[in-house]
Design a protein around this nucleic acid. Structure first.
Length: 453
DNA sequence: TTAGGGATAAGG
DNA sequence: CCTTATCCCTAA
């Protein structure tokens, strides 16, 4: 049963929306060994925690804790620290500090306290143990923030900047990368493998009518069946293929199939490109029986986890400038699709029936609304359907202009606008505090009108 | 990513 | 109108 526990926990942790599951609780409920599988499980749980807090829109010092824990786990796993991880940490730390910059002037105690608590103590500890989380950006922020204590103007500028958005971006990226690194969950692997096997069998019977598709599946099957699976970093060639097939045809192992389907439907992004990877605890023999038993087990668990009630919260508006301790109710500037309209009726507590979906009998699962993208940005066009909302015009402050001049002086030729091997983005990153609200394109544009072209 | 053209808004 | 400063879009 231990393997089951493992698998199920893993599976549950990786599902997109399960706010009711507290990863840490779940993990501690199981007695885990110390194998590398368990390490991965723990990593999954931390990722899930981060993800949940992101969904709730909560970026706080708890997030910092999580990022630190994640770093340690990755260290145990001998993984390298990703850039996104460092950046996420750095900007989250900044965001946490920004929270306490709501008074107009720095003299207030909160800011100094926050500085002390976060930057001196917490990050001091990191420095002591030589953590890689201490990046250049982080140090830069540290000096900037501490300088802001005496420099009211700098304080103002930081105070008004939108750090939250950047933090969210990096956190999201980090999650995406880490999930991808983890690869398929064991359950998915089994299902996929069984599917491919079956598919391959079928193919032998009617060889004719299919095209590249079959080849792909066939190939993967052979690869899988050869069972010397160490393709940790397999090229992601036809991943889309396998995925799509899987989604449509997988009907056996209903419980599992169902869940996996749903997962793919809602979580596509996170698993895309990852499903080639496989790691399998210890199944060789009898995964058929295992799968069958799992089906029952899963359904049971599924019931307990509460599939039907779901509360979705809009990630706290990424547009907020002055970070809101108490979010003001009036926030304009929601871009079209994202939804202050998706509000499900606030969490009705009846887990049993009475729902329109009624008691889903294990076959038909209730449909959920398509997931809302995590963040919305006024600064970048990314995640959403094009907002026709222009970001408000904001005149360049002399400081920004000065910083831009410095940047260009450092990296490039002032006259010809040739940046030696560096980009506008590098200039922006060279001064994240000042340029927090400018995109690299903004820098470019500003420079254009500065030199009068 | 960047360069460059366009759109938008504010001021003359 | 025209100019200026910003922001946005897109081809390369």
């Amino acid at each position: 049963m231990e393997i089951f526990d493992n698998w199920v926990a893993e599976f549950v942790l990786r599902r997109q929306h399960n706010p009711r599951v507290l990863p840490t609780k779940l993990i501690s409920a199981l007695q885990l060994g110390d194998s590398s599988d368990c390490l991965k499980l723990k990593i999954s749980s931390v990722l899930r925690d981060i993800s949940n807090s992101l969904i709730r829109g909560a970026i706080d010092e708890g997030t910092l804790d999580l990022l630190e824990v994640l770093e340690k786990l990755l260290l145990q796993q001998h993984s390298l620290l990703m850039e996104s991880h460092k950046s996420a940490y750095c900007w989250t730390a900044a965001e946490c500090t920004l929270r306490f910059m709501w008074p107009l002037i720095a003299s207030d105690g909160f800011f100094t306290e926050a500085l002390e608590r976060i930057w001196t103590k917490r990050i001091g500890v990191l420095k002591e143990r030589g953590s890689d989380l201490v990046s250049r950006d982080l140090l830069k922020w540290e000096t900037d923030l501490k300088r802001a204590l005496e420099d009211p103007e700098l304080y103002q500028r930081i105070r008004e900047s939108n750090i939250r958005y950047t933090a969210i971006t990096f956190l999201t990226q980090l999650l995406k990368e880490q999930w991808a690194l983890l690869g398929s969950s064991s359950l998915e692997s089994v299902v996929q493998r069984r599917f491919l096997k079956r598919k391959a069998d079928n193919v032998e019977e009617d060889i004719v009518d299919k095209r590249g598709n079959t080849n792909a599946a066939d190939e993967s099957t052979r690869r899988l069946e050869s069972d010397t699976i160490d393709n940790a970093n397999e090229p992601r060639g036809e991943s889309g293929d396998g995925n799509g097939n899987n989604r449509e045809n997988d009907n056996d192992v209903e419980g599992v199939g169902c869940l996996v389907n749903e997962k793919h439907a809602s979580e596509e992004e996170q698993t895309v490109g990852a499903q080639e990877q496989e790691y399998e605890p210890s199944l060789d023999k009898g995964d058929e029986t295992a799968a069958r038993e799992l089906k029952g087990y899963l359904l049971e668990i599924q019931g307990q986890i509460d599939p039907s009630t779901r509360q979705r919260e809009e990630p706290n508006n990424a547009i907020d400038h002055s970070v809101n301790i108490t979010p003001p109710p009036t926030r304009m500037n929601r871009t079209g699709t994202s939804g202050q309209d998706h509000n499900e009726a606030p969490d009705d507590v009846n887990k049993k029936g009475s729902d329109s979906q009624g008691t889903w009998s294990g076959r038909v699962r209730p449909r959920r609304p398509t997931p809302v993208p995590l963040n919305v940005s006024p600064l970048k066009k990314g995640g959403l359907a094009k907002s026709h909302v222009r970001r408000p015009k904001k005149f360049w402050t002399p400081e920004e202009v000065e910083a831009l001049r410095e940047g260009v002086k450092e990296y490039g030729n002032t006259l010809c606008l040739v940046l030696y091997g560096k980009s506008w983005k590098d200039i922006k990153n060279g001064n994240p505090a000042v340029f927090a609200e400018r995109t690299e394109v903004d820098l470019k544009d500003k420079w254009r009108n500065l030199v009068g072209g």
